[in-house]
Design a protein around this nucleic acid. Structure first.
Lengths: 221, 221
DNA sequence: CGCGCTATTTTGAGTAGTCAAAATAATTTA
DNA sequence: TAAATTATTTTGACTACTCAAAATAGCGCG
């Protein structure tokens, strides 16, 4: 049984390699886990010995099938717990990430399955992040963001790819939630700003960085 | 913030001193925690340094007010989680103890309060064990057991003081749940047996040891 | 090509928790 | 009261994880 430390390493490797399928560097991994790089190197060598990861010295690390299985299971727990906290316990959107961070290591598969049923087998968590299936399938889909999508198109927000409470609070207050509709009226790359317009409100500006964290799909029909 | 190891030590000291208000010996504590006695001694000395317990060398250990506060909080989490698992997730009576053992260290006060509200502020968990209040009050009540109560009286089961899955399964199968009514028809101390009679069934025998773990109150009105 | 920058790895050391086994204290028994 | 039994404490060692700081490797650039 992997320790919560091991689970965290594997989960973060999975998150950091989402989309970009190449190796995760010790630098990013250490930063994500809030440890010094030397610690990450040491730990990764241990994880490689136990068959969870493949380590290319000085290049980076990737998950083995066994490591990926563990990582997906932890991610599934995390996202289902978040969904439970928001949908059932009515907790604040912005604060559930930290809670789930603890609970994901303490919850059994048995409890998780029942939670899943209670929630009606959701496909995504409250932030729009896809929930891996019980069998470990992660429905990964490439979406445009407010920083990259076409201008003046009607859009629906599908996902917020940032878990910090501050950003989520900001999104909440500006009605930038999964499901909300809006369009990007303009973009100024030099100034690093995007202008958006949501249904009931007037136009507002958003940094390109922030806009890049809000994923959207074109509104059809 | 105490580690889960520390929380476990404190919780078990509280449980072992419930009722008997004197010191908990290293032997019982070590057995309850599944560590060797030497480990318990070492750990208790550390906990004493941090002000959680008072250690009388070669006598035993007791909780300080600060240690008791932590222990009660953990116990509250444990019992509320058990109640949630049984009442909401409809999990098996006998298996929730092990689950709660993990979750009690991962759940925040915020989540706990909402769980408490969702459950309707229960006073006891599914086994009849009292749930400490948010302010740390443990409604401790002395009950007779099937080993000590008067014979041929109508009784109601109020609590099962044993958490092992085997015993709980046994109790479940014989309809010996909190709320069930029955009476003790006879007792043979020499043979170590008690005979009980529940409403719809015929008389059955029970070891005195088992009987002592089933607490009852006289059925009034 | 070689110099310097940056990321990575190594080294040495520390904390938390554990066990096995030896030493010690207390209590029971004879 | 002395010996024997039992419980507790101490000692030395080990695992898992971490950091600080020194060593090293791989670059890019002049």
């Amino acid at each position: 049984m992997p320790s919560s430390t091991v689970e965290n390493y594997l989960k973060h490797i999975l998150l950091l390699s989402e989309g970009a399928q190449d190796l995760v560097s010790m630098g990013e991994l250490a930063a994500a886990l809030a440890v010094v790089p030397g610690t990450a190197t040491t730990m990764i060598k241990a994880l490689a010995r136990e068959g969870y990861v493949a380590h290319q010295p000085r290049q980076g690390v990737s998950l083995t099938p066994s490591g990926r299985t563990v990582a997906l299971s932890v991610l599934r727990k995390h996202r289902l717990v978040e969904t439970f906290l928001v949908n059932v316990l009515k907790m604040d959107w912005a604060s559930v990430h930290a809670e789930a961070e603890q609970l994901e290591h303490a919850i059994s598969d048995e409890v998780l399955d029942r939670l899943d049923a209670l929630l009606g087998y959701p496909a995504t968590d409250p932030h729009g992040d896809p929930i891996p299936s019980r069998k470990g399938k992660l429905n990964f889909q490439v979406y445009a963001s407010l920083a990259t999508c076409a201008l003046k198109q009607p859009l629906r927000i599908v996902r917020i790819t940032e878990q910090t409470a501050e950003f989520l609070q900001f999104a909440d207050q500006n009605n930038l939630l999964p499901g909300s509709t809006l369009s990007v009226t303009g973009r100024n790359l030099t100034a690093g700003l995007a202008t958006i317009k949501t249904a009931g409100t007037r136009a507002q500006a958003l940094s390109i960085t922030a806009a890049g964290k809000i994923l959207v799909e074109p509104l059809r029909r």
